[in-house]
Amino acid sequence: MSAIELIDAAQAPLLVRRHFEGGDPGALVAALAHVPEICEVALPLFGTVLGPTSLPVRLKEVVVLRTSVTGRCRFCVDSHTVVAWDSGLSGEEVAALRGEAPWPPTFSTLERDAARFADLMWERPEGAVDVLRPHLEDHAIVEMVVLCSTTMLLNRLCTALALPVAPAVAARLAAAGL
């Protein structure tokens, strides 16, 4: 149960009503809709940062899932476990990122360092990008920092508001024994 009442379609404020027109928009939108002027700009930011960009989707999910694991956000870990599966990460790879299994050899060096970068962003952000420098140019480093920072924001947001995962996510996790 969430820490706040979640806005439903009937109560969706005008600025963000379009996000409810296709059905249940999810707990994050239903929570942010309480403050439409923030929701209105936050969703495009989240969508842009977490959506398709110049970085490979698989690499991005390594960062997002690992950041969420280290940040202990149940909502984000559960949600991005499913997204990671759908982004081409294997069950073994996802389990490793979740801290539940050894690191498989299938990760590239960049992906391993990206996971390390995600840990460092919580533990010691000064110099965290150093692990990325051998692999990425400046623009990609900036994007990795934005991706990780946005995920950290979402981790705190979803945890503080105790947002429930979508039923479809819960069902897939249950089917996988998670």
Partner: peptide
């Protein structure tokens, strides 16, 4: 009811006015 809510912000007035 929040279905006709525009913004939570009321000051400066330019923010809800622009919205």
């Amino acid at each position: 009811d929040t279905d006709l809510l525009v913004t939570r912000t009321t000051r400066p007035l330019s923010i809800p006015a622009a919205a």
